[in-house]
Design a protein around this nucleic acid. Structure first.
Lengths: 148, 148
DNA sequence: ATACCAAATGAAAATCATTTCTATTTATAA
DNA sequence: TTATAAATAGAAATGATTTTCATTTGGTAT
C-alpha cells in the first residue's frame, strides 16, 4: 500500500511496476488528455529504456480497468485521461487546451424510453462527450480580445 | 436535376460524378454503416478502375457536407452511414447487424444548463451515440434461443 | 457543339498510429 | 530465495488513411 497508484494497480490485479505508476502519475498530474506518444515522451525523461509498445499496452489495460478514459477525437488518434470519479459519468473536453472536466449528467434515462418505444431495441452502451471551450480558455480569449 | 443524388451533390457544390453517385447509392441502399474498404469493394463491381483514395476523399467530402455520418466504433476504423434526416439528431447503432436508426432525442438542452453552471464553459459540439441490439436482431436471437 | 479550366481520379508510394513477436527482465507468491 | 507468470524492450509488421503527381473529366463560357 505504497501510494494511491499502487492501490489502483493492486485492485486491477496488475503488477505494480514503476512504469505503470509513472503513467498514472503523468495522467493524474493535470486534467489534460494525452496521446500515447505524448505520454511516452514524458516517460522517457525518467526511464532511459522505455518502449512505446509498453505505453500502449498499459494504457489499454488501465482503460480496460476503468482508471483512465479514452477521449473521442476527430483525428482518430487515441487520447487518454485519468479519472478519479468511479461513478458512471461523461466528459466535457476543452478543444483549446485539452482539459477534461467530469459531467455527472447522463442522458441514458431519457434515451431508454425513446429506444424501447420507437426502435424497440436493447441499449448496450452509449457514447456521450461534450466538446467546448473551458472557462479558463474563455477568460484568456476575452482578455486578449477585450478592450481592456 | 437527374436524381436525388445529383441534387445532393449540386447542393454541396461537388461535381456530379458517377463515382459519387454510386457511393451515395451504396450507402443509401441499406441503413448499415460501412467502411471505406467495404464501399470500395462494392464500387469495383461497377467500376473496373476505382481507387481506394477516391472512396476516402469522397466519403470525407460527403461527411463534411452532412450527407453521410461517421459512426463511432471502438476499432477506430472509419464507418459511414447515409442519412436523409436533415435535422440535428443522433444514432442508434446495432452492434450485431450494423443497422443504424435515427434518434430524434438530443441531450444537449439538459446539458447546457449543467455546463454553463458548473463548468462555466461554452459548448461547441457534442458526440452522442447509442449502441445496442436492434429489434430485428433481438427477434432473431429469441427465435434461436427460445423454446419454439 | 467545343474549348477551357478547375476539380476529380488512378496508381503508387508515403505516413503514421498501433500491434505483434520473441527474447529478456522483473514482480510477486510460495 | 526461488520459481514462475507477467511485464518489458526492441525490432519488425500491420493496416488504415493520406499524399503526390500525372491524367482525365465535368461544368461553364463561348
Amino acid at each position: 500500500m505504497k501510494n494511491k497508484y499502487s492501490d489502483i494497480l493492486k485492485k486491477l490485479k496488475l503488477k505494480i511496476t514503476p512504469k505503470r505508476i509513472e503513467i498514472l502519475s503523468i495522467l493524474d498530474r493535470e486534467n489534460y488528455f494525452k496521446s500515447p506518444e505524448e505520454i511516452w515522451q514524458l516517460m522517457k525523461k525518467r526511464f532511459k529504456k522505455i518502449g512505446l509498445p509498453t505505453v500502449y499496452r498499459n494504457l489499454e489495460d488501465l482503460a480496460e480497468g476503468g482508471v483512465i478514459f479514452r477521449i473521442i477525437h476527430p483525428d482518430r488518434q487515441l487520447y487518454y485521461y485519468f479519472c478519479n470519479n468511479k461513478d458512471h459519468h461523461h466528459h466535457f473536453v476543452c478543444i483549446s487546451c485539452k482539459r477534461v472536466s467530469d459531467v455527472d449528467y447522463c442522458p441514458e434515462k431519457e434515451v431508454i424510453n425513446y429506444v424501447s418505444k420507437r426502435i424497440k431495441g436493447k441499449i448496450i452502451s452509449h457514447i456521450f462527450q461534450i466538446n467546448g471551450i473551458c472557462n479558463v480558455c474563455m477568460n484568456i480569449e476575452s482578455s486578449l480580445g477585450g478592450t481592456k
